[in-house]
């Protein structure tokens, strides 16, 4: 009884956290005039979606998806399959993190170059200067 309550509580907490963080970071992307803060909000949004992917493949009170002994007995495989977390979303997140690293680095270099050319990182000023 207490286990299932804790399980529900943790899952609900994570889900609402993900939704709230996504909303806050989208708000930051839309309303912050500073390019740096926009990029920070974007990285938070990316991490939120990565947590969502992990969350989809997760089970509370589970074991890591590593099979330690390969003796081929059906019972062991069944308990493993019913208790281990799903490793595939983790592989997806790993790929997404690497891609996010590339995109964020590129954005930061562009922001640096923008600062060199415009002398400011305020998106309103940049829009004025561009004309």
């Amino acid at each position: 009884m207490s286990t299932s309550f804790l399980e529900n509580f943790l899952i609900t907490l994570t889900l609402y956290n993900i939704l709230a963080t996504a909303g806050i970071s989208l708000y930051g992307i839309v309303t912050r005039p500073s390019v740096t803060k926009k990029i920070i909000s974007l990285t938070i949004l990316g991490d939120t979606f990565n947590v969502l992917a992990i969350f989809i493949g997760f089970r509370v009170f589970s074991v890591p998806p590593v099979l330690l002994d390969l003796d081929g007995s059906v019972e062991k495989l069944t308990t493993f399959a019913t208790s281990a977390v799903d490793p595939l979303p983790q592989a997806l997140v790993l790929t997404a993190i690497v891609i996010g690293l590339a995109v964020n680095l590129f954005l930061i270099f562009l922001a640096l170059q923008m600062y060199r050319l415009y002398g400011t990182l305020d998106s309103r000023r940049i829009r004025e200067l561009r004309g």
Partner: peptide
């Protein structure tokens, strides 16, 4: 100035679009 600003706009919104597709894939 024009190229860097245009590229930033493209890359920034492109990154958000990519994230939305990631959610769709998951």
């Amino acid at each position: 100035r024009e190229a860097v600003e245009a590229s930033f706009k493209y890359a920034f919104f492109g990154a958000i679009a990519g994230l939305l597709y990631f959610v769709a894939a998951v």
